[in-house]
Design a protein around this nucleic acid. Structure first.
Length: 198
DNA sequence: AGCCAGGACTGAG
DNA sequence: CTCAGTCATGGC
């Protein structure tokens, strides 16, 4: 089955999904919408989005959703704020490391990272694997990197398609589609919608 | 009452 | 390099 046909079929069933970037009525001084997306991609690792929303809301209330604040906030406090998202020991560490990287190499300009960092650079940051790297590039940077997750593999399998590595799945989709970040954005979200519907 | 969610790292072998 | 074990909360 051709990828574009599958996309149309999924869109017909589930409609537009409204993933990132969306920020309605959340503007505080110093709020960094691009950094919030990056934070979301880490918090949602193997975790339901509903739990992540609670954690992000906590970070909003304490105004920790920008790079300098993330660096300054006490480690223990950060853990307590993100606790609803689970794995809070690991994830607090990941958020700190990511913020420090953006501070050290991009003068705390998260937008600059999302728009110009290479995939390999992100993969070298502790806590960022292939799916999180692609999610950051696609959803925070509006760059056409196709995101693969467990649902994607499951969906492929139902069509008799199976690969071994993440990059093979990624190539399977990217080789069939024009590099359109809006398309990749919707497609991945639609695959997740399909997965939840199973 | 389990099972699993919008994964990634670590340590064996 | 492959792969089980580990991390942790909340919803269903």
């Amino acid at each position: 089955m051709k990828a574009m046909d599958q996309y149309c079929e999924l869109f017909e069933r589930f409609g537009a999904q409204g993933w990132w970037p969306v920020h309605k009525g959340k503007r505080r001084p110093g709020f960094d919408p691009v950094f919030e997306i990056m934070v979301g991609t880490i918090l949602t690792q193997n975790t339901s989005w509903k739990n992540v929303e609670k954690a992000i809301e906590n970070l909003h209330c304490e105004q920790v959703l920008d790079v300098p604040s993330m660096i300054q906030v006490h480690h223990a406090k950060l853990k307590s704020l993100i606790k609803p998202a689970g794995y809070y020991n690991q994830k607090a560490k990941k958020l700190k490391i990511l913020a420090k990287h953006i501070s050290d190499h991009y003068n705390s300009d998260s937008k600059q990272v999302a728009e110009s960092a290479s995939r390999g650079e992100l993969l070298n940051i502790w806590g960022i694997g292939p799916e999180t790297a692609d999610s950051i590039l696609l959803y925070a940077g509006n760059r056409p990197e196709f995101v693969i997750d467990t649902y994607t593999r499951r969906l492929c399998k139902t069509h008799g398609i199976e690969f071994k590595t993440y990059d093979e799945y990624k190539h399977h989709f990217e080789s069939q589609l024009k590099p359109d970040y809006k398309l990749f954005n919707q497609y991945h979200a639609l695959i997740v919608a399909w997965g939840k519907n199973q």
